[in-house]
Simulated scan of single mutants.
Amino acid sequence: MNGRCHTVSDVMTRKVVALRTKASFKDIVRTLRQWQVTALPVLDGDQRVVGVVSEADLLPKEETRNGGPGNATPATDRTDPAKAMAVTADQLMTTPPITVTGDATLALAARTMARQRIKRLPVVDAAGRLTGIVSRSDLLKVFLRSDEEIAEEVRRDVVERLFVAPAEPLRIEVHDGIVTLAGRVRDTALVPVMARLVRSVEGVVDVDCELVGPLYDPGLGPELRSTSLE
Rank of each mutant, 00 (worst) to 15 (best):
D176F: 04
E160W: 01
A82N: 02
T76L: 12
V29T: 05
M113K: 04
L139P: 04
T101P: 04
D187N: 15
L140M: 11
L211W: 02
A84V: 04
G51Y: 00
K26V: 14
S135I: 13
E63V: 08
V49P: 03
T95R: 06
T79W: 05
T73C: 02
R33N: 11
A104L: 01
V37E: 13
D80F: 01
A189C: 02
A39C: 13
N2I: 12
G67S: 07
T188G: 09
V207I: 07
D208V: 12
R20D: 10
L197T: 09
L130Y: 05
T105I: 06
V179D: 01
G221M: 11
A195N: 06
R136I: 15
A107D: 10
A114P: 03
E63D: 09
D90C: 05
R199W: 04
V164F: 06
S9M: 08
T79I: 07
R20L: 13
D217K: 13
V179Y: 10
P192Q: 12
L130A: 04
K22C: 12
M12R: 01
V205A: 07
A165T: 14
E160A: 15
A56G: 13
A82R: 01
G203E: 04
A86C: 11
A182W: 08
C209E: 10
R186S: 12
R111S: 10
T105M: 02
D157T: 00
T105W: 03
H6M: 09
D208L: 14
A89Y: 05
A82Y: 00
D10C: 11
R30Y: 08
G3N: 08
D147F: 00
E210R: 12
K83P: 06
E168T: 09
L106Y: 02
S137H: 10
S54Y: 01
K61D: 13
R136E: 08
S24Y: 03
L211M: 05
R171Y: 07
G68E: 07
L220D: 15
V124H: 01
M1L: 09
E55P: 15
V158K: 04
M1W: 15
H6E: 11
L170Q: 02
M93L: 01
V204G: 06
T188W: 15
G183L: 14
S24M: 07
D138V: 13
T76S: 13
Q34C: 02
R117Q: 10
A72C: 14
V164I: 13
L140D: 01
I178Y: 10
S226T: 13
R161M: 13
S54N: 12
N2L: 14
W35G: 03
S54C: 06
A18M: 04
K61H: 15
D138P: 05
E173T: 12
E55I: 14
Q36H: 14
T95F: 10
P81Y: 05
S9R: 01
K26E: 14
G213E: 06
T7V: 15
A114D: 08
A189E: 11
E149C: 00
P192W: 13
A167R: 07
V124L: 03
V159W: 06
L92S: 05
A126P: 03
Q91H: 08
A23P: 03
E210Y: 12
P214F: 03
R111H: 11
A23H: 00
A165S: 10
G221D: 12
E55Q: 14
M113I: 00
Q36L: 15
D147I: 05
P60I: 03
D90K: 03
Q91G: 15
